[in-house]
Design a protein around this nucleic acid. Structure first.
Length: 269
DNA sequence: ACACGTGTTATGCG
DNA sequence: TCGCATAACACGTG
């Protein structure tokens, strides 16, 4: 479920639990997830070093490594999760907020581990990803990512989102405009702001853009603190028989920016 | 059986 | 070239 809030939680887990531990072995044998690196290349770059910092911009994470080593980049794709275990093999909490799942759940089945780092103390960091849409690499190119959606300033946000004629939701989803907003966070933000996701950005005035940024910040912070974008107020109502939790109108469905979009056709204008 | 999907990116079109 | 829309990617799930 990774959008900015989930990625931030994963980054925090790495920062809290994975830094400073000596890397003893790396499994980079999944050539799809680790493309274009041949097997062993990422391993050779990391073994013997330590992760020394965990950073994030939008949905991309990266870790600096010791001894002037390369930067390790991690992207969760649509279904990836990071699990870090302590020397006893116990997972550090915070990574996956899906309630009620236990350590014996199928979600932890190692057949879906696509990349892993084994620490000298016996613990591991692994990328768990059923669909293999995640990505691991070295020295990421961040030049095509816009500013992080959680920290972008108002003038920058207004200039970037307001440019062009695309539907506002498509603009929010464009990672080169601002980085971190995914399909659910976009729907939640636009519902909170009472703005129609199909509305062209050239019809938004300064006030609209101000409200949009305010609700983006609120929705993002709230999702981080509550454990993910699926905790948004409107998310559970994104279905055919769903109703707007504010006014009770039937939710409407459309495709905007290539993604399934749910909105309140009465309040979002 | 078959369509769908919380992300990214190459390709295509005006 | 720019801005935007769409298909493709891999594969589990309902």
């Amino acid at each position: 479920m990774p959008e900015l809030p989930e990625v931030e939680t994963a980054r925090a887990v790495i920062a809290e639990a994975a830094l400073g531990r000596e890397i003893a072995a790396v499994d980079d044998s999944d050539t799809w997830v680790c493309r274009p690196h041949p097997p062993g290349q990422i391993a050779q770059a990391l073994v013997g070093r330590r992760l020394v910092a965990a950073q994030r911009r939008g949905k991309t994470m990266w870790c600096d490594t010791s001894d002037d080593g390369p930067v390790l980049s991690l992207h969760l794709g649509m279904s990836g999760r990071i699990v870090v275990t302590d020397p006893a093999g116990l997972p550090v909490e915070g990574g996956d907020p899906v309630r009620g799942r236990s350590a014996t759940s199928t979600d932890r089945d190692p057949v879906w581990d696509r990349f892993s780092i084994e620490f000298a103390d016996g613990g591991v960091l692994r990328l768990f990803d059923k669909r293999r849409l995640g990505r691991v690499g070295l020295d990421p190119d961040l030049s095509r990512l816009g500013p992080d959606a959680a920290v972008v300033r108002a003038p920058d946000f207004r200039a970037r989102i307001g440019r062009g004629r695309a539907p506002v939701k498509a603009r929010l989803l464009d990672q080169s405009v601002i980085a971190g907003v995914g399909n659910l966070l976009a729907d939640e933000t636009l519902w909170q702001a009472r703005i129609d996701p199909r509305r062209r950005v050239d019809t938004l005035d300064e006030d609209d853009l101000g409200v949009l940024l305010k609700e983006l910040r609120r929705s993002t912070k709230r999702a981080i603190s509550r454990g993910g974008v699926h905790t948004g107020e409107v998310i559970e109502h994104r279905r055919a028989d769903g109703h707007c939790p504010r006014c009770g109108s039937a939710m409407a469905r459309a495709t905007v920016g290539g993604r399934t979009t749910w909105f309140c056709p009465v309040e979002q204008i």
